[in-house]
Design a protein around this nucleic acid. Structure first.
Lengths: 238, 238
DNA sequence: CAGCTTACAGTCATCCTGACCTGAACGCGA
DNA sequence: TCGCGTTCAGGTCAGGATGACTGTAAGCTG
């Protein structure tokens, strides 16, 4: 923060968010990752799809701006929100210089139901993306990499599920994100050893086989994940 | 990147860097981490110490701006440079809104010799920091956490050493950063198994004991560390 | 040469993880 | 009603990684 003064030409500051959710066909075979995108109505890049976001107001924090713009454009309230990276190549946007502070978010699967979805806001499957505006494809791939990496050392899969979930559902999240098959027995063992799951005592009835136990995420033991300060976790917009 | 136009009040964009190096007393017992800071000459925060940095020019990339301001203020050419986080709380700077894209860098120990060091640029020991301006202490602690975390799963310790180094020197870096004692035999085993070290065949003579082998970092096997794209590694300023 | 230091190699127990096996608990169709 | 399918849930076993530790090699110093 050096000398102030001399206004001059400056880069504009934007905030965008990569949002992840699971496909609603939870009962079906394998869920897949889905990302909501908004259609650009103005130049530059009009007609193409882009990440939800907006300009940063002078008096609003970065985290708050990410949560707000995310909610305004998609109607979603994420359960997990974290800063991803700041993209600022001089030529990433034509006409003017734009620096984007990008966040990534996870939303509950039942939240998706309530989400806005018109002709200008649309959900896309992870491997069925449209042509994106600017460098948003690069951003999205980086967010995907971060999600996959972080899932392996942190316990964030529950943020894509509801309040309670079965062990098979939780494993389905891991399989969908990591794109692998996981051994059910070994997965159960490691998750139980992590100490982040609480057995609710309830069981999910109505299955054509033995009823599975319902678990809940232990928010108390969720401490010490990653960014020690400014974690910003769990907000409730709308 | 939404609608342009309407100039209005905007946050100012700054770029700062947390620089890490080892104390030059390499021959002595345990090296320690040192950080160069610059004294602020103007308000706000005049007299206090701050991270090297500067305003972001409209036509310069973030990585380039970080490397340039770092070099201009300290005279250093880092061997490792990576984006850390973007800090943008509305009240982090009085008077005006400032958003800082912060980087962190590692420099070779022999680079420190060439570094500028006057009354306005001074090196501080990790646990002997002065009172810092703004939220720079929080930033520095977050950078320290990131350095410690990343050292354990990535091979970046060599960036704090010279071209060649002994196993004991490399272990000294880990011990200084992680603030622990490491078993020499086990450390050697894991480092050799990582496949990132190359034995130069030379040995360091002049020691009062058995001469140790000199190793070199294998840049070829350094692939696939972390941010898949825009890695920005290894620049050469000045 | 004795004695000090560190370099370097090897052993052993423990933990973690992937592969696999077995019984339990439901719904379903014959 | 009674197998028979499914998944759930708990267990065993082998291999790899890691920490604690021991032993030998190779330099210097007194």
């Amino acid at each position: 923060m050096p000398r102030p003064g001399e206004a001059g030409a400056q880069a504009r500051l934007a905030v965008s968010t990569v949002i992840f959710a699971l496909s609603p066909d939870a009962g079906a075979a394998a869920p897949s990752l889905r990302i909501p995108l908004v259609r650009r109505l103005r130049e530059p890049g009009a007609g193409r799809w882009a990440l939800p976001g907006g300009w940063l107001p002078v008096d609003e924090g970065l985290d708050e701006a990410a949560g707000r713009t995310l909610n305004e454009t998609t109607g979603l309230a994420p359960t997990y929100l974290e800063q991803l990276y700041t993209f600022g190549a001089p030529d990433r946007s034509p006409d003017e210089r734009v620096v984007s502070v990008v966040y990534w978010a996870l939303v509950h699967s039942d939240e998706v139901e309530r989400a806005v979805s018109d002709e200008n806001v649309c959900w896309f499957d992870e491997d069925d993306l449209p042509e994106l505006a600017f460098d948003h494809l690069e951003i999205l791939e980086y967010a995907l990499w971060r999600l996959r990496t972080k899932l392996q050392y942190s316990r964030i899969a529950h943020a894509l599920l509801g309040e309670t979930f079965t062990m098979a559902e939780l494993r389905g999240v891991h399989e969908a994100v990591l794109r692998t098959r996981l051994d059910p027995a070994n997965f159960r063992r490691t998750m139980e050893a992590s100490g982040t799951l609480v057995d609710t005592g309830q069981r999910l009835a109505g299955t054509p086989h033995r009823p599975p136990a319902l678990y809940r995420f232990d928010t108390a033991s969720a401490r010490g994940g990653d960014p020690i300060h400014h974690p910003t976790r769990t907000r409730n917009a709308s």
